[in-house]
Amino acid sequence: MIQFNYETNFKLESEEIIQSWISACIELYGFSEGELNYIFCDDDYLLKLNVEFLEHDTLTDIISFDYTMGKLISGDIFISVERVHENAKLFSQTIDNELHRVMIHGVLHYMGFKDKTERDKEVMRIEEDKCLDLINA
């Protein structure tokens, strides 16, 4: 089950479409959907989590807590809507495209994709694009 929670003045326009898209991406990689919770928040909210749980005193667009067991994808994905808007401008993307990229980025981490090395980042970007093609089709 995929749920969306809002801790800021933001709401997804098409929750059902996005739920279906995320489910399709999970199935594409041979995984099953468990409990996924998306929490949309602001920079301050996410910064507090970053300091408390990761000991990083920096702004970020996403923090994910992975509860995946085997092939059952589960976790909590916190997304700063403010960072998404800033990054969309920075990377000349639409807000929707940047938001979708961040949303699927967390799920891809749960499936084992990393982004620590330059090669890992390249692979992650390819997989993100593959998933984005599904929602943009």
Rank of each mutant, 00 (worst) to 15 (best):
I2N: 07
I2F: 09
F4D: 07
Y6Q: 05
E7C: 08
T8Y: 08
F10W: 13
L12E: 04
L12W: 02
L12S: 09
E13M: 08
S14E: 15
E16W: 03
I17C: 00
I17M: 08
I18W: 05
I18M: 08
I22N: 08
I22R: 06
A24Q: 15
C25F: 04
C25P: 04
I26Q: 05
E27F: 13
E27W: 08
L28D: 14
L28K: 14
L28S: 09
F31K: 06
S32I: 03
S32P: 01
E33H: 02
L36A: 02
N37Y: 09
F40E: 05
F40I: 05
C41V: 09
C41H: 03
D42H: 10
D42N: 15
D42R: 03
D43W: 11
D43R: 09
D44F: 12
Y45Q: 06
L46T: 10
L47K: 14
K48L: 12
E52I: 10
E52G: 03
E52W: 13
E52S: 11
L54E: 13
L54F: 15
L54D: 07
D57Q: 08
T58V: 12
D61C: 09
D61T: 06
S64A: 06
S64R: 11
Y67G: 00
Y67H: 10
Y67W: 10
M69T: 12
K71D: 14
L72K: 10
L72S: 00
S74G: 02
G75V: 04
I79C: 00
S80Q: 05
V81F: 08
V81W: 10
V81C: 04
R83M: 13
V84E: 03
V84P: 04
N87R: 13
A88L: 07
K89P: 01
K89I: 15
K89H: 09
L90W: 12
F91I: 01
S92N: 15
Q93V: 02
T94Y: 11
I95Y: 15
D96Y: 14
D96T: 11
N97A: 05
E98G: 01
E98W: 06
L99V: 03
M103D: 03
M103G: 05
I104S: 03
I104W: 03
I104T: 03
G106P: 08
V107S: 08
L108Y: 11
H109N: 10
Y110D: 02
Y110I: 01
M111T: 07
G112P: 12
K116S: 13
K116P: 01
T117D: 10
E118I: 13
R119H: 12
D120V: 01
D120P: 06
K121T: 02
K121H: 01
K121I: 02
E122Y: 12
R125Q: 13
E127S: 00
E127N: 09
E128V: 14
K130L: 12
C131E: 04
C131G: 06
D133F: 07
L134F: 08
I135H: 03
N136A: 01
A137V: 11
